[in-house]
Amino acid sequence: MLPFDSKSQVYIVLGATDMRKAVNGLSIMVEDHLDLKLFTGNFFVFCNRVRTIIKVLYWDNNGFCLWQKRLEKHRFFWPESEQEVLEFSFRQLRWLLEGLDLVQTRGHSSLSYSTIL
């Protein structure tokens, strides 16, 4: 599993990414196209068009790491937004990797009570 660090952030790169890209291609995409800093220890998450592969790129002390998960039967619930990048928590990333739909995932609704006389 990914080495989560409380100081790092998770960036979900929306849309489809060509999964033939490796470290060099994905890092150019992050720095040039998205204007984000690579060497911060942050995690950059990409998904293919059919939503069966997720790649996570991050810098770890002295080199890049590229982590991949490929689903054999199901599809990832990839968020759709007008933005290019969404900032997620590690908890949300774990949910995404487990197959949860983050749009549908919600906690309990708030309750409000009134006093009875």
Rank of each mutant, 00 (worst) to 15 (best):
E31P: 03
Q83E: 14
D32N: 13
I12T: 10
V103E: 14
E31A: 11
D18A: 01
F90P: 12
S109W: 03
L111V: 11
F90H: 15
F43V: 04
F77S: 15
Q9H: 14
T17Y: 01
V85M: 05
V50P: 00
Q104Y: 05
L117P: 14
F64R: 01
L102I: 10
C65A: 09
K21Y: 07
L66F: 10
S6P: 04
K21E: 07
L36A: 01
N61K: 14
K37Y: 12
D101E: 13
L111E: 15
R20M: 04
A16M: 00
G25W: 01
N42V: 06
N48T: 00
A22C: 15
S8L: 01
K73C: 10
L2E: 07
S6Q: 11
N62A: 14
V13Y: 08
K69R: 15
I28A: 11
M29T: 09
T17D: 03
M1E: 07
V23T: 13
W78T: 00
F43A: 01
N42C: 06
R70S: 14
Q83R: 11
H74Y: 06
Q104G: 08
T40P: 05
V30A: 12
V85R: 11
R49P: 07
Q9K: 13
W95Y: 06
V85C: 12
E98S: 08
S81T: 02
L102T: 12
V45N: 03
P79G: 13
L102V: 08
F43P: 02
N24D: 15
E82H: 06
T105V: 10
L97K: 01
I53W: 02
Q9C: 14
T17W: 02
L86I: 10
K55S: 04
T52A: 00
L34S: 04
L117V: 11
L57A: 01
D5H: 13
R51C: 07
F43N: 01
L66S: 12
V13N: 01
R70G: 09
S110Y: 10
I12L: 15
V30F: 04
E80C: 11
L36I: 00
Y113E: 13
F88N: 10
L38N: 10
K37W: 09
V10L: 02
N61R: 15
V13R: 02
F64H: 03
H108W: 07
I28T: 07
D5L: 12
V45F: 01
L2C: 04
V50A: 04
V85W: 06
L96I: 10
N24W: 01
E84D: 13
T105E: 11
F39L: 12
Y11G: 05
E82P: 08
L71N: 09
W78V: 00
K21A: 06
Q68N: 08
E84C: 06
F46E: 03
